[in-house]
Amino acid sequence: MKTAPRRSPELEPGREAGLVRAAQGGDQAAFAEIVRHFQRPVYRVAYALTRNPSDADDLAQETFVRAYQAIGRFRVGEPLYPWLSRIAVNLAYSLHRRRKRRPETPIEPLVEAGRQFGVEDDPAEHAAEQERHERLAEAFGALSPEHQAVLTLRVVEDLTYDEIARTLGVPVGTVMSRLSRARTELRSRFRARTGEGP
C-alpha cells in the first residue's frame, strides 16, 4: 500500500519561523503554507488515532483550526510539528472520551477494507494479511489513549524518545516505560483476538 510521506518536505532554515510570524500577524497565506507543509504528518497521526478516514479528516482539520486560534501564543523558534501533533493528540483524547460516553459504529473501516481488497498480487494472501492488520488495529484501538498516542508517535511517526517526550509533555523515562507497556498490552490484546502472535 502506498503511504503518505512521513514528513513534509523540509522548510528552509528560518522559513518556519517566518511563516509563524506572518501567521501571527494575520497572514492567511502563510498559515495556508504551514497547513500544506504539515497536513500529511498531522493526518497520519489523526488516522492512527482514529482509524477511520472521516474522523481522521475531521481531527486533522480541527487540529489546524485550533492551531490557527492559538498561533498567537506560539513561541517563534520552537519546532512547529511537535506542537501540532500535541494538539492532534489532545483532540484525539477528547474524541476518545466522547466516544466512551456515546459509542458509535463507524462504517469507514468496512468501506476501506472493501476498497483495498485485491490491490496486490495474491488476493488470498492479501486478504489474510489485511485480516491480521485489522485485528491488530482493533487491538490497538482497545489500548488506552496514552498508549495509542505513544505508539503512534514512535511507530507511525518514527519520532525519537526526546521528541515524543516533548510532544506529550512527559519525561523521557516515562516514554520508555510507557512504550514498553503499550507494546506488551498490544501483543496480549492481539493474541486474545487471533490466538497467535503478530
Binding site: T3, A4, R40, R44, A56, E134, V155, G197
Partner: peptide
Amino acid sequence: VEQESALRAALEHDPGEAYF
C-alpha cells in the same frame, strides 16, 4: 519487531493526492 512492522502498516492510510 514484526509486531512493530505490522502495526505501522495497519495504522497507515493514504487518502490520495486529491485529498491533500
